[in-house]
Amino acid sequence: MIRIKGVTKSYPLAGMARHTVIRDLTLEIPSRTHVGIIGRNGTGKTTLLRLLGGIELPDRGTVEADGSISPPLGLTSGFAQKISGRDNAKFICRISGDDPATARERVAFIRDYAELGEFFDLPVETYSSGMRARLAFSISMSFDYDYYLIDELTAVGDQKFRAKAQASFAQKRGTASVLMVSHNLDQLQRDCQVGLYLRGGQVKYYEDIGQAIADYKMDQHAQ
């Protein structure tokens, strides 16, 4: 269970003004459940993932979890651009506390899963967005988290990679939670069970992802 208690997050604008993205949010997210997160651009979907992953701190309120949470993984993942995919993977293993043997095994898994070929040993700055997505997703799958935060990650890449990602999600079902931001509503309907709909600084929880999607579509047609 992830418990969000009275969380508000804002960002400074010009002068003394601030833009509030999430306001007074209190919410419980169940464990071992795949969660689809939807909302228009700018409503705070990525901000919510960054708060859950501890990348950013709220202005006020707390986020508590009963298990380990991955960093948010997406196209903007913070890779060191000048070094190779392999060296990025090694660095993440090192800061995660892997001993040398574990790190070697994990890097081998990442190399095989990502299927980057010779690019695994080339600088990340030479990668396409799909290749960065493969590397980020592969690193995530190499660790056993209780909660995986995915930000528009599986919307890119070829059909084979997407099929592999879906198979990984299926393996995690029942043992871990996936919290997924995506504009691909068909993907959310297929891969998720419950929904979070962000609108106007608020987040509404749905027991059925299908109802969350239906309400989102209705709001889009009404505007």
Score class of each variant (00 low, 15 high):
residue 84 S to A: 06
residue 102 T to F: 04
residue 103 A to Y: 01
residue 91 F to P: 01
residue 83 I to N: 02
residue 98 D to P: 04
residue 84 S to Q: 01
residue 103 A to R: 08
residue 87 D to N: 11
residue 104 R to E: 15
residue 81 Q to M: 15
residue 79 F to K: 07
residue 98 D to M: 10
residue 103 A to V: 00
residue 94 R to D: 09
residue 97 G to K: 10
residue 79 F to C: 06
residue 91 F to V: 01
residue 109 F to S: 05
residue 82 K to T: 15
residue 86 R to T: 08
residue 92 I to H: 07
residue 101 A to I: 14
residue 109 F to W: 11
residue 87 D to A: 11
residue 108 A to L: 14
residue 90 K to V: 14
residue 80 A to V: 14
residue 85 G to S: 07
residue 106 R to E: 05
residue 92 I to R: 09
residue 93 C to G: 13
residue 94 R to S: 08
residue 106 R to G: 05
residue 94 R to F: 03
residue 92 I to E: 05
residue 105 E to Y: 04
residue 110 I to Q: 13
residue 94 R to A: 09
residue 99 D to N: 11
residue 89 A to K: 07
residue 91 F to W: 08
residue 102 T to G: 07
residue 103 A to G: 04
residue 106 R to F: 06
residue 81 Q to R: 13
residue 110 I to S: 10
residue 96 S to R: 15
residue 97 G to M: 12
residue 82 K to D: 15
residue 109 F to L: 10
residue 111 R to H: 10
residue 82 K to R: 15
residue 107 V to M: 01
residue 107 V to P: 04
residue 99 D to S: 03
residue 87 D to E: 14
residue 96 S to G: 11
residue 107 V to F: 00
residue 78 G to W: 13
residue 81 Q to F: 15
residue 111 R to G: 01
residue 89 A to L: 07
residue 98 D to S: 09
residue 98 D to Q: 03
residue 95 I to N: 09
residue 89 A to R: 08
residue 105 E to S: 11
residue 94 R to I: 01
residue 109 F to P: 08
residue 106 R to S: 05
residue 92 I to K: 04
residue 100 P to Y: 01
residue 93 C to R: 09
residue 88 N to K: 06
residue 79 F to L: 08
residue 86 R to W: 07
residue 87 D to Y: 07
residue 89 A to G: 09
residue 101 A to H: 13
residue 111 R to V: 02
residue 105 E to K: 13
residue 109 F to T: 07
residue 78 G to P: 14
residue 91 F to H: 07
residue 88 N to T: 02
residue 110 I to R: 13
